[in-house]
C-alpha cells in the first residue's frame, strides 16, 4: 500500500511536474519564435538570449497587486482559474512516457493512472475543459467576458464532436484503448524506412484531430475566446496577476496534453525515432531513456508547430468557425469512421 502511494507520487512528480515546469521554456520559445516569424527580435534583454524572461514574468505575476474588482461574483471568480488548471492537468494521468519496464522484479507502468480505459480517460476528462472558461466569463459579471466565454464554450463543444470521431476511428484501427498497445502497433517500419505511424495510415483522421486540438486549446486560428482585437481579452478581462497567470498555465498545459495525445495516436508516442535504435544497444535502461527522449523531442516539435501556426494564420470569424466544425469536419469525420469500420471488418475476416 505504501509502495503504491510512493510509486504514484514519484510518477506524478515526474509526469505532472515536467509539463508544468516546462511552461517557462514554452513561453520563451513562443515569444522568441513570434519575433523570429515577424522579423523582429523577441525579448532578449533578460538573461542570455532572453532565456530568463519567464523568470521575470513569474516574479511580476507573483508580486503584482492583486486587484479584486467589486462587481465579480466572489466564489466563482476565485475558483474559475483553478478549475481550468485542474481539468487541464488531469489527462496527464494516463499519458505514459515509456514502455512498461521491470524494476526489482515488478513491472512498472510509467503512467500515473493505469486503467482499462487508457486513452479514453483523457478524452472523457478533457470534455470538462469548457467549464473553466465558462465560469470565468460568467463570474466576471461583464458582458464582454460573457460573450467570449460563450463563444469559447460553443466552439469547444462543437469541435469535440469531430475530435471524437477521429479518436474512435483510431481506437477502432488499433483495436484497443490501452496506450501501450497503441504505441506498440506503431513501432516498426514499412519498406524498411517508413515508420508505422498512424499519420500515414489515417491522414484524414490526423488532420481532423489536428484541427480539433487547435480548437480545444483555444489557440489561433481558433482563439476567439480571447480575441484580442474584438473582445479586449475575452474571458480573462477581469483577472489580474496570479489568476491570469494560472489561466495561461492552464492553456499551455492543455496544449501540451493535447499534443501528447496527438503524438500517441498519430506519431508513434514514445516509440523510438528512426535512427535511435543504434544508440540503444541492449540495455533496458537505455531503451527507457531513449523512449522518454523521443517522446520529449516529438512533443517539442509539436509545440513548435503550435507556435508556428499561431503566428501564421489569421483568426476565424465565429460563423465560419461553426460552419467548419459542423458542416465540414463532422461529416468528414463520420465518413472516415464508416470507411475505417468497413476496412477493419474486412481485414479481420
Amino acid at each position: 500500500m505504501l509502495e503504491l502511494i510512493l510509486e504514484t507520487l514519484i510518477k506524478a512528480a515526474i509526469i505532472v511536474g515536467l509539463p508544468l515546469g516546462s511552461i517557462p521554456i514554452i513561453l520563451v520559445v513562443e515569444r522568441r519564435g513570434a519575433g523570429f516569424m515577424q522579423k523582429r527580435l523577441g525579448p532578449n534583454r533578460v538573461g542570455p538570449f532572453g532565456l530568463m524572461q519567464p523568470l521575470a514574468d513569474v516574479f511580476k505575476f507573483l508580486f503584482k497587486e492583486e486587484v479584486e474588482p467589486s462587481h465579480v461574483r466572489p466564489f466563482f471568480y476565485t475558483i474559475a482559474p483553478l478549475i481550468a488548471l485542474v481539468v487541464a492537468v488531469m489527462p496527464l494521468a494516463v499519458i505514459p512516457v515509456a514502455a512498461p519496464f521491470d524494476f526489482n522484479g515488478k513491472t512498472i507502468f510509467p503512467e500515473v493512472f493505469h486503467t482499462d480505459l487508457g486513452i479514453f480517460f483523457a478524452f472523457a476528462v478533457s470534455a470538462l475543459g469548457s467549464y473553466g472558461i465558462l465560469v470565468a466569463g460568467w463570474a466576471s459579471n461583464n458582458k464582454f467576458s460573457m460573450l467570449g466565454a460563450l463563444r469559447a464554450c460553443a466552439q469547444m463543444v462543437s469541435y469535440e464532436l469531430s475530435l471524437t470521431t477521429a479518436i474512435v476511428a483510431m481506437i477502432f484501427l488499433y483495436g484497443s484503448n490501452d496506450i501501450h498497445s497503441i504505441v506498440a502497433e506503431q513501432t516498426g517500419y514499412w519498406f524498411g524506412f517508413l515508420p508505422k505511424w498512424g499519420f500515414f495510415v489515417q491522414p484524414v483522421a490526423a488532420v481532423l484531430f489536428l484541427v480539433g486540438i487547435f480548437a480545444e486549446s483555444n489557440r489561433l486560428p481558433f482563439d476567439l475566446a480571447e480575441g484580442e482585437s474584438e473582445l479586449v481579452a475575452g474571458y480573462h478581462i477581469e483577472y489580474s496577476s496570479i489568476k491570469f497567470a494560472i489561466f495561461f498555465m492552464a492553456e499551455y498545459v492543455h496544449m501540451l496534453v493535447l499534443s501528447g495525445l496527438f503524438i500517441i495516436l498519430f506519431f508513434g508516442g514514445y516509440s523510438l525515432l528512426p535512427g535511435m535504435e543504434l544508440l540503444v544497444g541492449d540495455s533496458a535502461l537505455m531503451l527507457t531513456i531513449m523512449q522518454v527522449l523521443s517522446f520529449i523531442i516529438k512533443i517539442s516539435l509539436m509545440v513548435w508547430f503550435f507556435v508556428w501556426v499561431r503566428w501564421t494564420l489569421p483568426r476565424f470569424r465565429y460563423d465560419q468557425l461553426m460552419m467548419l466544425g459542423w458542416e465540414r469536419l463532422l461529416p468528414l469525420g463520420i465518413f472516415n469512421l464508416i470507411i475505417t469500420v468497413l476496412v477493419v471488418h474486412f481485414r479481420n475476416h
Binding site: L117, F120, A124, S130, Y131, L134, M146, L150, E160
Partner: peptide
C-alpha cells in the same frame, strides 16, 4: 464499471450539464 464512468463524465457532465449551465447563464 470503468467504461460507464468515462461515458458518464464525457456525456453527462461534459455535454448535458454544459447545456444546462449555458442556458442558466444566458
Amino acid at each position: 464499471s470503468v467504461f460507464l464512468s468515462a461515458i458518464q463524465v464525457l456525456v453527462n457532465a461534459g455535454a448535458v450539464a454544459i447545456l444546462f449551465v449555458f442556458v442558466m447563464m444566458l
